[in-house]
Amino acid sequence: MTNPIDALLAEKGVLLADGATGTNLFGMGLEAGEAPELWNETAPEKIATLHQKFVDAGADIILTNSFGGTRHRLKLHHAQDRVYELNKRAAEIARSVADKAGRKVIVAGSVGPTGELLVPLGALTYEEAVEAFAEQIRGLKDGGAEVAWIETMSAPDEARAAAQAAIEAGLPYTYTVSFDTAGRSMMGLAPKDIHGVSEGLSETPVAVGANCGVGASDILASLLDMTGAKPEATVIVKGNCGIPEFRGTEIHYSGTPELMADYVRLAVDSGAKIIGGCCGTSFAHLAAMREALDTHHKATRPTIETIVDRIGPLRNKTADESGAAEGEGGSRRERRRSRG
């Protein structure tokens, strides 16, 4: 498998991934409950604009509009028989933008959770999960995605199933977990254990890490655990833009461009090699993050106290504070997440 991420890391040292998909598409007219993936066919120009604005802001990696692109998610919109074509189109749109950037921009095929619980907590078998992810990833690969970007996972088995599907499709892969439950994933995975999820698979991940979750301070705390456990690993951090706040029926994120710029500096100092933004991260935020990345020289590894002083308080306990008993197994419910 060719590995575009390692090649670009060798050139640039640290890479900037893009920002929020959902938040920005809502700003372009996406309605609540509407599947963003359907816009790959009905409004491709808006998806191209999304990617173009992230490239213009300085992104080295853009994620395809395919987060909910498995048959299990698309069936909620009566589109479960269009998995391949919708994912292929998602990658083609991103590819068209990346190819005219005038510099190397990696197209990463976004692969989110199925929304189903795996056996024994639910009805979905590991083999069925692999099959569903493989169907999606084949479309992404044929549309021009260079890497399978598995993201916002909570169950280690589901992340592993997606990784297995990427290997079968012949794509290098990354995976990220959302550590949103007392410093752990909803299914109890601690950040320090992220590296073991793919153990025993025939191909190792290009990178692993965290995305979404709660706020920037919390994801930086998770980052310290991940890089502390395996300093040589290529670690991704793609945090939300501050803290989500309800204003009436709308969600707003508290992060400013200045806050997200400092989040980038702290992420570099904490050992991250790929840094981006998740929910709430606009094009203006990403531009500030690009400038911070270009002008910052790696400094002393921060402590939790340093992070809190500069970014704000943690919203959750850390994984060490929550302990295995509280985190193991997590909640028995599975939420339908949407990246961004």
Results as ranks from 00 to 15, higher is better:
217 S>N: 02
214 V>N: 09
208 V>R: 09
176 T>P: 03
226 M>S: 05
210 A>T: 06
203 E>D: 07
207 A>E: 02
224 L>M: 14
201 L>N: 08
197 V>P: 03
196 G>K: 12
213 G>I: 04
177 V>F: 13
214 V>S: 07
223 L>K: 08
223 L>E: 13
213 G>P: 12
180 D>H: 02
215 G>E: 05
213 G>L: 08
195 H>C: 12
227 T>W: 06
207 A>I: 07
204 T>F: 05
225 D>A: 15
200 G>S: 08
217 S>V: 03
174 T>S: 11
177 V>Q: 06
174 T>N: 11
221 A>F: 15
187 M>S: 11
219 I>T: 14
219 I>R: 10
190 A>S: 08
198 S>Y: 05
223 L>N: 10
219 I>V: 10
207 A>V: 05
185 S>C: 07
224 L>F: 13
192 K>H: 05
216 A>T: 02
199 E>M: 12
222 S>G: 09
226 M>K: 00
212 C>G: 04
215 G>N: 13
185 S>R: 05
227 T>A: 05
214 V>E: 08
179 F>Y: 15
215 G>T: 15
218 D>W: 11
192 K>F: 00
197 V>M: 04
211 N>A: 01
191 P>Y: 01
219 I>L: 15
180 D>N: 14
227 T>H: 04
214 V>P: 07
209 G>V: 05
219 I>N: 14
222 S>K: 05
220 L>D: 14
210 A>V: 12
203 E>V: 14
211 N>S: 08
176 T>R: 09
191 P>C: 06
184 R>F: 00
206 V>M: 05
226 M>H: 04
205 P>K: 04
186 M>Q: 12
186 M>V: 10
211 N>G: 03
197 V>W: 06
195 H>I: 12
221 A>C: 15
225 D>L: 09
191 P>V: 02
196 G>D: 11
215 G>H: 03
216 A>N: 03
174 T>P: 08
204 T>A: 15
173 Y>Q: 02
188 G>Q: 02
214 V>F: 09
185 S>I: 01
199 E>S: 15
184 R>G: 12
181 T>H: 12
174 T>C: 13
